[in-house]
Design a protein around this nucleic acid. Structure first.
Lengths: 212, 212, 212, 212
DNA sequence: TCGTAATCGAGACGGTACGTCCGGTCTTCCC
DNA sequence: GGGAAGACCGGACGTACCGTCTCGATTACGA
């Protein structure tokens, strides 16, 4: 597990540790300021052009303070992105139909992803490359809330009778973000037309029972 | 700044060209050697650790020769990847069933993508960021051959009676590579189990007629 | 109020100090090592073929450390030569006669200059060009010790009765190094024959009283 | 005239040479244009900052044409300076006294040298270093005309009875330019006061018979 | 209340890569 | 063949950044 900051590995630090807990403790406020600054620069100018020095300057911190906490640029970026990943889709409005619900969820997701496209994509790629566990973590963090939302959407559709029993929303979570992300990566816009296309041509066909 | 190569300013090549075609012409062989070297290094050590100097050394070129042609690292990498994009899926064996054909195609594609994962993913991200047109070009180049292959697969399935008329393979091309790419990006393997999952849970449901 | 930077608490600082002295101070030992390395390379291979990179490597320093202190090659060389200028003729043996004393001094000086001829001459020219004050400094630094030595020589000659009172040794200092330097610059050797020629034909005639 | 261009070293080029004199002959006008351009740049920006490319551009020549004639930058500069050396002191007015004649000659020489100081000094040093024979040649070329002028001055002084027979003007030629050049090199001006100082304190004492 | 041991901002340090420029050579087309 | 134009390799230039270090100045905690 490479990308963990020393603080993460401390765990229980019983009183029997070699020389107790002495000295000035770390200032958690610095950590937040640094990660905020990193995230800002990442979106503004992208991974390559972002320098540790610039992060330090923006956070009014010193480079040493950054390197005391993270191994390097990739780890810093990974940590910064982890913070951003936690706030996500969250709420799923009930629009009265499966298609309406899906459209709402998809549009929420697309809005979120479109805001990301600046420099975060390259930062993501780099962070994943430097920290193999980060990719899985990222997926897990993103996967679960989406599963909850879509499970609710599916349950409501089943209650309405739009869907039969035994429908698994996991394929939606696997396919939706992938297709949108790929499209974003290829420089095409994530607009309302694409949302409709995604819902009608891909997501709904994956849900409805097949006449076989 | 002088970053503009003469070629960039040429525009119309009529008799009225500013200063005629004089001097030693550029050596196309150098260009190829440089792009080959860049591609090799990209796969070996990845985008970040690849240096222009190393590319120049491997191609037995000088850095000036590289900078005469491309603005910087990202543009060089974009050019290098453009060359690689041309060879792709190519052939689609007739296995006697839709599922067999799709599995064959998917496994071919996954093999190809898995070979890419080394450093090319990060290079891809950087190249796309630096060259907005590159994303679309990449998609177009990759899209068409896959469409041809899958159109043939679908046509054979229709001839067999496995599929009805009016089935559009374009959704397959949109979904398959995206899901595989996303999975690769998240650090999970593109193995045979995933190929089966992709075909059975996602691709075939998208093709079969639905009881709407 | 945790976040106060040291600067906030400074209050009145000496009127001249631009911004308090913070951060790691420069390491004077590096400066010496760099100047020594520069001087070595200068004598070995001359100004043109000496590169900043080579100086850095020999001093086990980084180029940045050099450029942090000096504007460029010429300034570095000027600084390096300033150090060398301080050790000079030093001692003047009493040989019992004016001619003997002058010969001794001249031969000492010629030996020193001949050791210089390698690359220092070109370095000198470049340093003077880049740093107009350096020329005057150089002259001043070289002038004074020679004046002291030759004043002593003249005083001894006066005590012996070889010279009358009121003889000024400054012309010797003005003429001797100039003639030797010019000869060196023209590629002719500074040998014992030249030393005798210089003393007998030029220096002594400048000292002895004229029968006018 | 007899400029020692590379052409001079070709020797007799009889009809028996391997494949005769074929092709377009060299254009002497190019040579002059190149040397003029080199001299201009040398005085304007000095040896180090002068580039062969800039010389070629100013002479509307190609770098190949330069390298066809001279080995490299130092040789080019040496050749350029050789041309400038040929016009020199030239005429020696008869002012009616030894001191007046010397002052006139010295002031002429100083005017000439002061015009040189720009970049030619460093060029001189470099040229001498690269071409050991150049130093001697330079000295010889400069020596002879000065000897002629000063011999005439001395002869006139002898005719007037200001000097006795057997006075050798060679020391003047050895000392005068050296002292002036050294002073110039040290950044001090070659003004009228210095001319008087040089004549009265150094040159005349070297000429007048001494009471030995 | 003090000393100790850590943290903090600042910035010098050794390295490495950057992108530019120059020295010399070679190639293409025109004379 | 000479000449202008300019691409080519090699290598130095001066800049920027990385990750480490050394300062002096703050903090907490433990003696």
């Amino acid at each position: 597990m490479a990308g963990l900051s020393p603080a993460d590995t401390e765990g229980e630090e019983g009183a029997g540790s070699p020389h107790g807990r002495v000295g000035r403790p770390r200032d958690d406020e610095r950590e937040e300021a640094i990660l905020d600054a990193a995230l800002e620069l990442l979106t503004e100018i992208g991974y390559d052009r972002m320098s540790i020095g610039a992060v330090a300057a923006r956070a009014r911190a010193s480079k040493a303070t950054i390197y005391r906490r993270w191994q390097g640029k990739a780890e810093l970026v990974a940590a910064a992105m982890r913070r951003r990943v936690d706030q996500d889709v969250a709420d799923a409005p009930d629009t009265g139909s499966l298609r309406g619900d899906l459209l709402a969820v998809v549009e929420l997701m697309l809005t979120y992803m479109a805001g990301v496209d600046g420099g975060l994509v390259s930062g993501m790629a780099a962070a994943i490359r430097s920290d193999p566990g980060f990719g899985r973590l990222l997926e897990a963090r993103l996967h679960e809330p989406k599963m909850q939302v879509l499970s609710a959407v599916v349950a409501r559709a089943q209650a309405r009778g739009e869907l039969g029993p035994g429908v698994d929303p996991s394929a939606l979570v696997e396919v939706g973000p992938a297709v949108a992300g790929f499209r974003l990566m290829h420089g095409r816009p994530l607009d309302a037309a694409f949302a409709e296309h995604l819902v009608d041509t891909i997501l709904i066909p994956l849900l409805v029972p097949r006449s076989r």
